[in-house]
Design a protein around this nucleic acid. Structure first.
Lengths: 113, 113
DNA sequence: ATGAACCATAACCAATGGGTTATGGGATAG
DNA sequence: CTATCCCATAACCCATTGGTTATGGTTCAT
């Protein structure tokens, strides 16, 4: 097709992150890790509503997106939510939230900015 | 499988949003709309690097995610970025960012919170 | 040494998704 | 009226993905 004149992306990290967060099960797992702290795959399986292999794969994607870290201890693997993981999309939203704010002066009660 | 004991999600809006933002082309289009304001499909096609039907479909998904609005005028359809669209995930990140901040006191220079 | 527990990977399936070209319909220009 | 432009939808292709069950490798307990 036509040339991609606009190349405003350049951020593969955001791709990874948004894709990782776009699945409900994955968000559920991540939220649980954030709230309850480090958990084994076993514990997460009991809580996530899907099979253990699926939990492992979800954790793999979260890890590739730098949203969790893994620590192996004996036969168990403990996963922990990684605070800095959200940074790229926080930054992305800061940039475009700011542009939005500039353009539309009436934000109609959009808080959290 | 086991029962989904943890039901911390309940937010289909975040699903829609994260999924919409997880594609680079879609973010490119959205960023362009944010920066340049209302644009026709024609203009977006010239700039996005993909075919016109694909632009239409991407815009459809952005619209379903409430990230853009459409205004038809004659034979052209003008799309506009919708400021409030990001609100649900801003809120989501505020909640889990806050929990994260509580749990890990050392944020290691994560700004934008 | 055996067996059980925990985890990861493989093999497979149905569904979704990004991409294309082709088509059709409404609005505008000549 | 006809041709053209703009957009959306359809039909199709291939890659990815969420899910499953089956398997294999470690580690722990007995």
């Amino acid at each position: 097709m036509t040339e991609p004149i606009l190349r405003g992306d350049r951020s593969a990290a955001c791709d990874e992150l948004f894709k990782a967060l776009s699945d409900g099960t994955r968000r559920t797992i991540l939220e649980y890790l954030v709230r309850e702290g480090e958990q084994s795959v076993h514990a997460l399986t009991a809580v996530s509503g899907v099979s253990q292999p699926m939990v492992s794969r979800h954790l793999g994607k979260l890890k590739r997106a730098s949203l969790v870290t893994a620590r192996r201890s004996g036969r168990e693997t403990y996963y922990t939510a990684r605070a800095k993981g959200l940074a790229p999309i926080v930054r992305w939203m800061a940039v475009y939230g700011a542009l939005w704010s500039q353009r539309f002066t009436a934000l109609e009660g959009l808080d959290a900015y």
